[in-house]
Design a protein around this nucleic acid. Structure first.
Lengths: 335, 335
DNA sequence: TTGAAAGCGCTAACAC
DNA sequence: GTGTTAGCGCTTTCAA
C-alpha cells in the first residue's frame, strides 16, 4: 500500500475484511485467546505487521473494563516534591511498566489537597494507584481505601489492609545509630523534618532504640524535630552544636543539605567541630567534602517493587501486606 | 439508596432508566450540548449528583475518538532526569491540566531510546505530547512529526513547523554576559554541559555575543564545553582558574553545583580567587554561600504555557510557532 | 477452527 | 425538547 494512501487508523474490522475472515478471528489471532488455526493466525499476524495495525486502547479498555494505566501520585508539597528520592522512585516505576502493557498517569497530592488523585480515580482513568509516601492520618490512603481501587503505598502506615513497600527503616536506623555510638560518638543529636511523615517517626524511633541498645538515655534536648523550612533546619543544627553534640544525625538528604549549608555559613567544620551522618543521602550530597556517612536505601528499587506488586494485585494475584527492602551503611569521612 | 447496595458503576443508561427518559437526554444534560428542557436537565443533574454518577472515560474516549490524556516526556539520561528544572516544569503542567479534562501520561526519553514515547503514541494513549527538552538532531521530534500527533516542545529546535516554548536564552545570556563585563570582569570563562542540548548551544552563542558587544574577542581557551560527568565539570572549572579566568560562567545549575563543590575541595574561594555566575539556578543553590549571581528563568511557567499551548492545538486553535518567555538577572555575592 | 451477534458506555445524526 | 438508532473498536458468549 502506498504511503500516502495508508490509513492512519486501521482496525480489526479492516484486517478482517482484507483477509476475508471475521473480526472475531482477528481478535483471537492478536490476543492469543481461544482456538485458532495456525495458518490463519500467521496470516493475520503478518498482515497486521505489514499494515502497521495498532490496537485502540479505548476500545479494548471499554470491552475489558480496564484502562491499562496506573497512577503515580507524587507529593505536591513545595519542600518535598523535587527531592531526588521521588525522581528515582518514579524512574523505577517507569522502568517496570516498560515491561508491561501499562502506562503511568500522574497525580499530585499534598497533605490537604488530594483533588488530583480523586479526579483520576473517580473518573476511572486508572486500574490502580501507587502512593509515593505515607503521612500520619493520610487522606490519600483513606480515600483509596474507600474507592475500592487497587493501590499500594511506598512507605508504612497504621491503616489496616494496606499493601506497603518500604525499607526497614527501624532496623536500619537502630543499627546505624548503634554503629555511630560504637565509633565513639557520645552525644548524638537528631535533626529531622516534618513529623507528619510516617518515615520520620520511624527514623526517630530507630534512633532512640539505637541509643538505648548502647545504654544511652535519649536526651530530648538533643532531638530537634519537625523542621519544615531550611532556616528551621539550620537553626536546629546550630542549637545541636551549642548543646554540645559531637555528632548530628540528619533524617534525610534535605536535612543534611540544609545543615551542611548552614555550617558552612557559620564556619563550623565537619567533622572537625561536629560530625554529621544522614539517614538517607542522594547524589547531590555524594560529592560533598567531606563525604557524608549515610544509611543508604535504593529508591529506584522501591519504585520497581511497588509497581510490580500493584500489577500483581490488579492481575488478581495475592501479595504480602508488607514488603521490606534492605539498606546499606556507608561510613565516610563526615562521621 | 443504601450505601451498601450502591452500584459502583452507574451509567447513563441507569440514569435514563431511573428517570424514565432516554440516554440521549441524559447525555445532553451532562454535556450541555444540544437542546434540552431546563426542568429535565435539572432532574438529571440532581440525580447524578445524588447517585454519584461518574462518566466512563473509555466510553467517552471511544465515542469522541479522544483520550483526554497528554504525554509529558521526561529525559531519561542519568545526569539530567532528576534536575529540579524538570520537576518544576512538570509541576506547571500538572497545575495547568487541573483546570481541564486532561490528565498526564508519563514517558521517558533518552537520546537513543524513545521506545517509551513510541509506545504511548503508537497505542494512541494520548491526544498530544509535550517534549520537555530539545536535542540537536532530536529523535523524539522527528518521531512526533511523523506520527501526526499534536505536540509542543519546551526549548528550541531547527526542525521546521515545531511549536516551541522557550525562554529567550540568546538575549538573556548576551545581556547577562555583558553585565558581567560591565562589572569589571575581564577574563570570562564558560563552563558548559553537553552540546547535544540545543539550549547549551544557544547559551554559548549568547555568551559569545555578550563578549563581542563589549569589544572582547572570545577566547576558545576559556570555553570548556561538553562536560558530561561531575568530574569533567570540576576539571574544566579548575582549568579555567589556571588559565587565569577572573569569572566563570556556568551554563546551568548542575554545572554550577559541580564547580562549586570542586572549588570547595581545592580550597578555592568564591568570589575571592574567582567569581562565579550561572545561566540558570535552582533552589538547591539558592542558599549557597555566597549566593550565586544568576540569570533566572521560571521553569514552572514553561510547563504551564507548554500545556496550555498544546491543549489549544488539540482544540483546533491556531498558535504561534515560537513562544518566548522572559528572564531575570539576579546579581548576588558570587560575581 | 471459525463466525454472528451482542455488548462495553457514550455521542451524534436524524427523526418526531 | 426528546427519543431512536447507529456506531466508536474490541471482546466474548454461543452456534455452527
Amino acid at each position: 500500500m502506498d504511503k500516502n494512501t495508508e490509513k492512519t487508523n486501521i482496525t480489526i474490522g479492516d484486517v478482517a475484511e482484507a483477509l476475508g475472515i471475521s473480526k472475531t478471528t482477528v481478535s483471537r489471532a492478536i490476543s492469543g485467546k481461544g482456538r485458532i488455526g495456525e495458518a490463519t493466525r500467521q496470516r493475520v499476524l503478518e498482515y497486521i505487521k505489514e499494515n502497521n495495525y495498532k490496537p485502540n486502547p479505548m476500545a479494548k479498555g471499554l470491552a475489558d473494563q480496564k484502562t491499562y494505566n496506573i497512577c503515580w501520585a507524587v507529593p505536591g508539597d513545595y519542600n518535598v516534591y523535587d527531592l531526588p528520592f521521588f525522581q528515582r522512585c518514579m524512574a523505577g516505576v517507569i522502568e517496570e511498566t516498560q515491561q508491561t502493557n501499562y502506562d503511568i498517569l500522574l497525580a499530585q497530592v499534598s497533605e490537604n489537597d488530594i483533588s488530583s488523585l480523586e479526579r483520576i480515580v473517580n473518573n476511572k482513568k486508572v486500574d490502580g494507584v501507587i502512593l509515593s509516601r505515607t503521612l500520619v492520618d493520610d487522606k490519600s490512603i483513606k480515600f483509596m481505601k474507600e474507592s475500592g481501587v487497587s493501590f499500594v503505598v511506598i512507605g508504612s502506615t497504621q491503616e489496616s489492609g494496606v499493601i506497603q513497600i518500604d525499607n526497614d527503616h527501624i532496623t536500619g536506623c537502630r543499627e546505624f545509630t548503634s554503629k555511630l555510638v560504637e565509633k565513639g560518638n557520645k552525644k548524638l543529636a537528631l535533626v529531622g523534618g516534618q513529623m507528619n511523615h510516617v518515615v520520620n517517626i520511624t527514623r526517630k524511633n530507630g534512633f532512640i532504640e539505637g541509643l538505648k541498645m548502647n545504654g544511652i538515655t535519649p536526651d530530648p534536648n538533643l532531638m530537634f524535630l519537625d523542621n519544615a523550612t531550611s532556616k528551621e533546619v539550620g537553626d536546629a543544627a546550630m542549637k545541636a552544636v551549642k548543646a554540645g553534640a559531637d555528632c548530628i544525625v540528619c533524617m534525610d538528604d534535605r536535612i543534611s543539605y540544609n545543615a551542611i549549608m548552614r555550617f558552612r555559613k557559620e564556619d563550623i567544620s565537619i567533622p572537625g567541630v561536629v560530625k554529621l551522618a544522614s539517614f538517607y543521602n542522594s547524589d547531590f550530597l555524594s560529592n560533598n567534602q567531606p563525604a557524608i556517612t549515610t544509611l543508604q536505601y535504593d529508591p529506584k528499587e522501591l519504585g520497581i517493587i511497588a509497581c510490580r506488586t500493584l500489577l500483581k494485585i490488579i492481575g488478581g494475584e495475592q501479595v504480602d501486606t508488607k514488603i521490606n527492602l534492605g539498606y546499606e551503611m556507608l561510613m565516610k569521612g563526615s562521621a
